[in-house]
Design a protein around this nucleic acid. Structure first.
Length: 301
DNA sequence: GCATGTCAAGTTGTG
DNA sequence: CACAACTTGACATGC
């Protein structure tokens, strides 16, 4: 007996059983190359990643997986302090742009949503100036890439606790204003598994006017006085208020041995029943990647 | 082929 | 104090 669902499910970052690979390079491995060789190497990787993204979307379309989270290292070392570059520096610049415009068109035509979830180093609420600067640069890089592929969302966490949650939320709000208007328009914020609960994130979300992405596994690790129904409702309201033209995002994962770590697959019982009437995208965070999404979707119509 | 060490970056909790 | 965890291990090297 299959449950009828309005949800759509998404894959995060990588494929496990299909020949789609996103490649990276380390600073150490290009530091002995001259500038021209270095840019050729990086260009090759950026083009390879672009082609793989396009091919990956075609596989997702076949599998009826309607959302994909793009790896933050898509343009490797783009904001590295020693080896940063501009896209126009790259040997294959035109081919990269052309391929990414195909990605954008393919995703739009087939209604596949694209998003980002920048690395743990991206913390605009940090008390350290350098961390804030790096984070802003990294977010602006994501915004550039988001524009090229037509991604809808760049989703981050609030940050560490530092002196107090309320001081950190204030600093986040202050530094948010330093982001470009384009970045402000695409940024979302998610509850985490150790510090900031849905109630905290909803507070920040209301202050600065960006949507709240609800991760129900994090809520279970790091509960507050909100029920899952109430947290869901606040998430939906935030999207309705601040991005009414977009569907909300949820995250799902199942815990491994009852711990914080992610399991290979999703236990379908971890998806609350009341989610199934909601038009939203659920990004699946599971080690078995697209196999986990496929298996999960078999439970639903 | 396989085992191993390393990778730009922050912050927290656990053992 | 070292290490794992976080949206994702990937890569080069040495045998």
């Amino acid at each position: 007996m299959k449950i009828k669902t309005a949800l759509q499910f998404g894959l995060c970052c990588i494929f496990l059983s299909h020949p789609i690979k996103f490649r990276i390079v380390y600073a150490n491995n290009i530091k002995n190359l001259n500038k021209k060789e270095r840019l050729r190497k990086i260009s090759e990787l950026c083009l390879s990643n672009s082609v793989n993204l396009l091919d990956g979307l075609k596989i997702l379309q076949r599998l009826n997986i309607k959302s994909f989270r793009i790896n933050s290292k898509f343009f490797p070392l783009y904001t590295h302090p020693d080896f940063s570059y501009k896209l126009t520096d790259l040997t294959d610049y035109e081919e990269i742009i052309k391929t990414l415009s195909k990605v954008k068109k393919y995703a739009k035509d087939n209604q596949i949503r694209l998003s980002f979830h920048p690395d743990q180093f991206i913390i605009i609420s940090s008390p350290h100036q350098k961390v804030i600067e790096n984070s802003i640069a990294e977010l602006e890089y994501h915004t550039l890439l988001a524009g090229l592929v037509g991604a809808e969302v760049i989703n981050i966490h609030i940050g560490g606790k530092y002196e107090s949650k309320s001081e950190t939320i204030k600093r986040f709000s202050k530094n948010f204003k330093k982001l470009s208007p384009q970045t402000q328009k695409i940024l979302t914020v998610e509850n985490d598994d150790v510090i900031y609960t849905p109630a905290d994130v909803n507070e920040l979300s209301s202050i600065i006017g960006i949507p709240f992405v609800y991760d129900i596994h994090h809520h279970r690790c790091n509960p507050d006085n909100l029920t899952e129904e109430k947290a869901t409702e606040l998430c939906l309201q935030s999207w309705q208020k601040f991005r009414p033209h977009q569907k909300p995002y949820f995250h799902i994962s199942s815990s491994k041995n009852g711990a914080r770590a992610h399991a290979d697959y999703i236990n379908p019982d971890d998806i609350p029943e009341f989610w199934h009437q909601i038009q939203a995208t659920v990004d699946v965070e599971a080690k078995a990647k697209e196999l986990a999404v496929i298996k999960l979707m078999k439970n639903f119509d």
